[in-house]
Design a protein around this nucleic acid. Sequence first.
DNA 1: GGCTCATGTAAAGATCGTTCACATGAGCTG
DNA 2: CAGCTCATGTGAACGATCTTTACATGAGCC
Lengths: 250, 250
Amino acid sequence: MSWRKEQRRAERGYHHGNLKEALLQAALGLIAEKGAAGFTFADAARMAGVSAAAPYRHFRDRDELLSSIAQRGFEQFEQRLAAAWDDGRPDTVTAFERVGKAYLAFAREEPAFYNAMFESGVPVDANPALQAASERAFNIIRAAAERLAALTPPGTPRPPAMMMALHIWSMAHGVASLFSRGDAARRKLPMSPDELLEAEVLIYLRGLGFPTDRRPAGKGAEPPPVPPEAPSGSGVPPGGTPGGPWGKPK
Amino acid sequence: MSWRKEQRRAERGYHHGNLKEALLQAALGLIAEKGAAGFTFADAARMAGVSAAAPYRHFRDRDELLSSIAQRGFEQFEQRLAAAWDDGRPDTVTAFERVGKAYLAFAREEPAFYNAMFESGVPVDANPALQAASERAFNIIRAAAERLAALTPPGTPRPPAMMMALHIWSMAHGVASLFSRGDAARRKLPMSPDELLEAEVLIYLRGLGFPTDRRPAGKGAEPPPVPPEAPSGSGVPPGGTPGGPWGKPK
DNA sequence: GGCTCATGTAAAGATCGTTCACATGAGCTG
DNA sequence: CAGCTCATGTGAACGATCTTTACATGAGCC
């Protein structure tokens, strides 16, 4: 046995005290480094200063550890999305876009969680708690979509809110997993993932009849200003950044 | 040594004859079954009836096999996308949507390839040939986007074609990887992935000012042949079919 | 026929995931 | 405080995988 190990043991005694948490943290670090596939149960144990068999006292097997991380990830994800949504303040469209940004930010800033959640092959539906956490996170997007759906300008086709939510989710996930993470991020793009997603969502919202004219596209005339936030009237600020979400068209 | 093995050997002699190809096929089957993560080099060897060391005569290591499969996948992917695009016939928008469908169809029908290409953790940029194949596939989408960009009705914002291509790619990939494959597909949806993507793309195109009012929601009449390629038409048509691509709003 | 080299084999080392019998010690009970 | 118990950690061991190394085979070519 290594000197190091003995030393660790001396420091902390026979019992670790908080092994479960330590393992989760270790795994998180390892996944961030080498991906969920490269992460090793034995490595996590080593990193926690414990024998290879010890983790089995806290997790049925390697998959359960991964699953736990995914679940915790969904919980944090939900919190961040909820904070971004902020119940639709100051206006629905702005908040909606903030959710998109939060999605990408999470994928970028918490690669280990995102990996465990969406790219580790953990079957979400196998674990009820995990599935529930996943649904709670999605429900934020869904709630936002409901609000948005209620606001689609009259005379415009109005898809079910659920569908809009799924659309947004797929856009965000598509951008995140193709361009915003790991080696995929190395695909060189003419713009940042954030800009890409923002423009995508804006075009989509325009397709639903929402005024997205706060960013005049190019030199052209302002797109016809549909009454902001249709029925009630609290709404999208008319002003905007010049250049449009996609920059000046050449 | 097993009887089976001896028998196989007797059938084919000491040399396999076409081991490289056999390994690729075996791997493809295994990945389809158990995912790229669960796929094992030794298993592929076994399935080809050779010793565990034999594959190393044809692939530097397990990753190179995976990488080869990904590359082959991108090549087939390119072919299918190209066939779907069919150089924009009969009209750009129709062909464009066909590309979207082809994307999903590939993801669904060739799970092993799709898995190796996008979900196996193979670093695309590590292998120049692989990267080139990937780019050739993307170029189909890109070419389609160029054509579409050239047609955006005047008076409408016109994002760069490259951006449009990336948008479409991210939508397709998002839908495919969230809803169209593996356990993720088990997330129960109120509609098929194909419908979901089609609606998403249509709304997006509408956001770009394209007329997307053909296609009465259900089993209705034949899509009214909108004058194909309508650069002259003004943006979003006021009428549109009731319901649009997403069925009747409730 | 004989040489050569690509192709396959067997054996072995390193690492993992996992299990099992056993050790330790924290906390309760009396 | 003594003793018991049970959660928690240890070591050893099994089978599987990946990979390397030395050796075997035989197809093609002179």
